[in-house]
Simulated assay, not measured.
Amino acid sequence: MKMGWRELIRMKQRFTLMAIVTTLIVLLILMISGLADGLAYDNGAVVRNLPVEHVALSQDAEGQLTRSFLEQTDQPAGTEALGVQSMVLEKQNGTKDDVTVFASPVDTVYGPKELATLKPGQVLVDTQYAKQSGTAVGDTITDFRTKATFEIVGTVSDGRYSHAPVLWTTLETWKAWQDKMKTNYVSAFISQDPIKTDLATYTQQQIVEQVPGYAAEQNSFQMMRIALVLIGSLILTAFFYILTMQKMKQLGILKAIGIRTRTIGQGLVLQVFLLTTVSFAISLLLIWTIGQLLPGDLPFRFEWTTSFGYGGLIVLTAMLGGLIPLRALKKLEPADAMGGMTG
């Protein structure tokens, strides 16, 4: 152990360069993870923020809120109706945006409490969308298909659905809007408690995972993260393998004077552990700082659990890779290492 520590101190430049490369690798992995977590949260944030655990949809909806069409007369006891539908919103300046409308009763238990103050035809818009689009309280918006108009009377911070801004309104306004499309349905029945019904039931997390595009997006990011971990591990393994091979003559001398292979190996493993751990700590500090500085509209989310998970994985794989040169060290004959000296 002492030999490994002393070598780290005496060969500062070499190990500092390796630490920088390791830090950049880990930083890239954490950046990708932060972006993946941010997009995952953004994709179904409005559902995550609903204080419910159970959702009932029609049998053929496949877990997607916008594919579920239910009669409100079939509402199970102890549940609350929820309407969800996409809308092409036409603003006063003529521009169009894709949004998702969420509707709950005026006396909602789970939706925004601001719904209690809404009158027919009034809506609440996502705070982030209001800032980005220049939409303000008092503006009038129009559904492009039905030409139904709505007045914006406030904002909510309940997030987005399928990366689209969310409009919240009451079921009364929802019904009037549906009448213009000659339909009359709600999308889901939600509850904090298990729902007794013949409808298809899902947990909140299952509904989030069925948001359009969620699975494909996350699977792509997961492949990228795994690839980066493997590439990073291979790079670190190559670093320490080459470094060990370059020191074979010195290591042979150590074996010749009676130092055991196990002792030398412990020093090498200590170097790998310290280098990767310090690099991970620096990367963690950098990624946390970056997360604080990034604008709020960028889908980046720093998660301690995810960061420690991938950081621990890169440390573990690097240490396993660092064991590979020990096989060559074990077979090393001192005389061969010192230039073919014989007794």
Rank of each mutant, 00 (worst) to 15 (best):
Q64C: 02
Q13F: 15
L30C: 07
V55S: 01
S68G: 04
V84Q: 00
D74T: 06
L50Q: 04
L82H: 01
N93E: 11
D98H: 12
F69D: 04
V84L: 02
L28Y: 12
L17E: 10
G38K: 04
D97G: 06
I25W: 00
R67E: 08
I25G: 04
Q13S: 15
E80W: 12
T100E: 03
S68I: 02
A61L: 07
I32N: 03
A56E: 09
M31S: 12
A77N: 12
R6T: 12
G38F: 10
T73W: 09
A40M: 10
G78R: 01
S68T: 01
A45Y: 13
R6K: 15
S33G: 02
G34S: 02
P76Q: 02
G78T: 04
P76L: 00
D42Y: 12
E80A: 00
V26P: 08
E71V: 01
M31N: 13
V99A: 05
N93I: 01
N49D: 12
E71A: 13
T66L: 01
V52Y: 05
G34A: 06
E7Y: 06
G94K: 00
E53Q: 07
V26W: 05
L82G: 07
Y41I: 06
N49L: 10
T23I: 12
E7T: 02
V88Y: 09
T23E: 05
L39H: 05
G44Y: 01
L82F: 06
T79V: 04
N93W: 06
Q13M: 14
R67I: 10
D60H: 02
E80G: 05
T23L: 15
L17G: 13
T73Q: 01
G38Q: 07
L35M: 12
N43T: 11
G44L: 03
M11L: 15
V47Q: 00
M18S: 07
Q13K: 15
K91Y: 13
S58D: 04
T73E: 11
D42W: 04
Q92D: 15
R14H: 09
M87D: 03
R6D: 08
A45T: 10
L8S: 03
V21D: 05
R6G: 11
R10E: 07
E53R: 04
G63P: 05
I20D: 11
E90K: 15
L35R: 05
I9L: 13
V46D: 09
Q64H: 13
D42C: 14
S68C: 08
A61Q: 05
V52L: 04
H54I: 06
A77S: 12
V26A: 13
K91Q: 10
Q59V: 15
V52A: 01
